[in-house]
Structure formats: C-alpha cells, structure tokens
C-alpha cells in the first residue's frame, strides 16, 4: 500500500509525463489555449490511462512474458489503446451525451497521445525492476496507482499551462516569438520549477 502511494505521488510530480519525459507534448501544446478545454482533455487522458494501463499490465505479465512474445508488445499495446478509445467513445456517447459533447473531439485524439502509449511502455520496463525500487510496478494495484498518477500529473501540467497562456494574452511578446515559441520557453521554465520535486521520496 505504502509503495503504491509513493508510486502515485512520484508519478504526479517527480516523474511527471510532461516535464520529465515530454510525453503527450503535441496535444499538450495544441489544446492549452484555455483552461476549460484543457481540463476536459486532462480528464479524458486520466480516464483512458486508468483503463488501458492495467489492461496492458495484465497482458504483459500473463500473456507476453510467459510466451516470450515481448517483440509483439508495440502492436498489441497500440491495438489495445485504439480499441479501448473506440469503446470508451461509444459507451460515453450512449451513457452520457453531455460528457460526450464536451470530451467528444478529444477522445479519438487520445489514441495517438504519447502519454498513453508511453505509460504502457514505462510499465513494461518497470515490471522488470526489483520490487524494492520506488519505481517498480509489482502488482495490479501499483499499475493502477501509476496510471492514475501519471494521468493526474498530465492534467495538472496542461491546466497550469493553459492558465499561464490565458494571462499571457496581454503580454508584449516579440513578434517572431509569439504563439508557439514563447509557449515552449514557458513550458521549459515550468519544467525547471517541477525539477525541485525530483528528490521526492515518501
């Protein structure tokens, strides 16, 4: 339990998907113009991450590893992600049309969000680690903690950036730097700030 909690907190702050590994950068930069849509995409990422990562964990541990089919993991993981995204999209559309309308456009995008695929690939590496290691994923509970944590960390990062970009509308930025250029530098400075979490241990 303690291990899962530590993993959870670490994956939000110290191993933040955006600031430490640059995963999911494309949609991160494209959809961070206002806080509301950013939060919507963040929720969708947490949702899909929490479903796909434990499924991929089970596949890795119970199917791929015993059969020695590690080289098929890329195709299998991406197929699971694409299928789950499609499924989630259909279920959300049926069950809650209002949620579908607010998330709708982002759901298909998530299939190619590196944070989701990256989460599964990191899981694949961490399964092999020594169980004493703070980064190890030793059971299904750990996989859940890592999934929710990394999703939350991603959402935290995109909401922060959207807030800053909304404020920055009124700033006097040099013309060639406007738009994407200054956004990169802002994210860089935010990443520097997040580095103070890197020694975090519980």
């Amino acid at each position: 339990m303690e291990h899962a909690l530590s993993l959870f907190v670490r994956s939000i702050f110290a191993d933040n998907m955006i600031f430490a590994f640059f995963l999911g950068m494309c949609s991160y930069l494209a959809v961070s113009k206002d806080v509301k849509t950013a939060a919507g995409l963040g929720v969708a990422v947490i949702f899909v991450q929490t479903i796909t990562l434990p499924i991929n964990y089970l596949l890795q541990v119970h199917v791929l590893a015993p059969l020695g089919l590690g080289y098929l993991s890329f195709i299998l993981f991406i197929a699971v992600i694409a299928a789950i995204v499609q499924l989630v999209e259909m279920i959300v559309e049926k069950v809650s049309p209002s949620l579908y309308n607010s998330l709708g456009i982002f759901l298909p995008l998530i299939a190619v969000n590196c944070a989701i695929m990256g989460g599964s690939l990191f899981m694949q590496q961490r399964v092999l680690l020594d169980p004493e290691n703070v980064k190890a994923i030793a059971n299904l509970g750990d996989a859940f903690a890592f999934a929710v944590g990394s999703g939350l960390g991603w959402m935290l990062a995109i909401v922060c950036l959207a807030g800053i970009r909304e404020k920055m509308e009124y700033n006097d930025v040099p013309k060639p730097l406007q738009g994407i250029g200054i956004t990169f530098i802002t994210v860089g400075l935010m990443a520097l700030a997040f580095m103070c979490f890197s020694g975090l241990n519980i």
């Binding site: 600031f19 430490a20 590994f21 640059f22 040099p174 060639p176 730097l177 994407i180 250029g181 200054i182 956004t183 990169f184 530098i185 994210v187 860089g188 400075l189 990443a191 520097l192 580095m195």
Partner: peptide, 14 residues
C-alpha cells in the same frame, strides 16, 4: 536537464 531542450527548441523556432 530536460527543461533546456524546451527552451532551446523555443529559441530555434524564434
């Protein structure tokens, strides 16, 4: 550090 990659790409775009 990872952060400098972002700032450098920002400068290249500039």
């Amino acid at each position: 550090m990872p952060a400098m990659a972002l700032i450098l790409v920002g400068c290249v775009i500039w």
